[in-house]
Simulated assay, not measured.
Amino acid sequence: MTRTGERTTVTSDAVLDSALTLFAALGYHGTALSQIAGALEVRTPSLYNHMRSKHDLLLTIVRRTVTGVLDDFTAATDGLTDPRDRLLAATRAYALRHATHRREAIVVNRDTSSLDEPHRSEMQALRRTHDHALRAIIEEGVAAGRFSIDSPALGSFAIREMCVSVARWFRDDGPMTAEQVAEEYTGFALRIVGAE
């Protein structure tokens, strides 16, 4: 957002960022377009130069976040063959994302169900892709004798939920950095799967 004389010039990125902040704080349904406009110091009709609807803002946030999680997973695990190494890398990446993208995590985990179809099902399917990929690592580790857990599905759920919780409590000015938290969480993940 920039000011030109007395006029405020708003960008699409600024609209999305303000929506993200308000959705995280108030919820998608608790946020009015007038509040987004107010945060940007513009009139509500001006927002339509940068978006189609409030729903479109939510869809953009969810899509960018979910694809970002999958991109992180791929980048972290690509080229690794040992299940233990892959689990460590995947957990570290997921915990780190939730420490560094807290607003996005809160919105996605609370408000994805507010998307209209077919977008809701599409985004939920992408989220399941991450779940299945993490579960596959655990299953490979069990098959190789590296992990000893009866339910890889439950292990995957526990690791993902543990990482998701980081978005709710982590603070940049806290006693640990995001990287330290992510590293600590890798040890928790190993214990969950009963790593050797």
Rank of each mutant, 00 (worst) to 15 (best):
T4A: 11
E6T: 12
V10L: 11
A14S: 10
A14T: 04
V15N: 10
L16W: 02
L20P: 09
A25M: 08
L33N: 10
S34R: 14
V42M: 03
V42F: 09
R43G: 04
P45E: 12
S46V: 00
N49D: 12
H55Q: 15
L58M: 10
I61K: 02
I61D: 03
V62H: 08
V62Q: 06
R64P: 04
T65S: 14
T67G: 00
G68C: 03
G68W: 08
V69C: 02
V69N: 09
A76L: 09
D82T: 03
R86N: 04
L88Y: 13
A89Q: 13
A90F: 11
A90K: 10
R92F: 15
Y94R: 13
R97E: 11
A99C: 15
T100H: 09
H101N: 09
D111A: 05
T112C: 06
E117Q: 14
E122H: 13
M123A: 15
L126S: 05
T129F: 00
T129D: 13
H130L: 15
H130M: 13
L134C: 04
R135P: 02
A136N: 05
A136V: 01
I138V: 15
V142S: 07
A143D: 14
I149W: 01
I149V: 15
D150Y: 03
S151G: 03
P152V: 04
L154Q: 09
A158I: 09
C163H: 01
S165H: 13
V166D: 01
W169P: 03
D173Q: 06
A178I: 02
Y185I: 05
A189R: 00
A189G: 00
E196G: 12
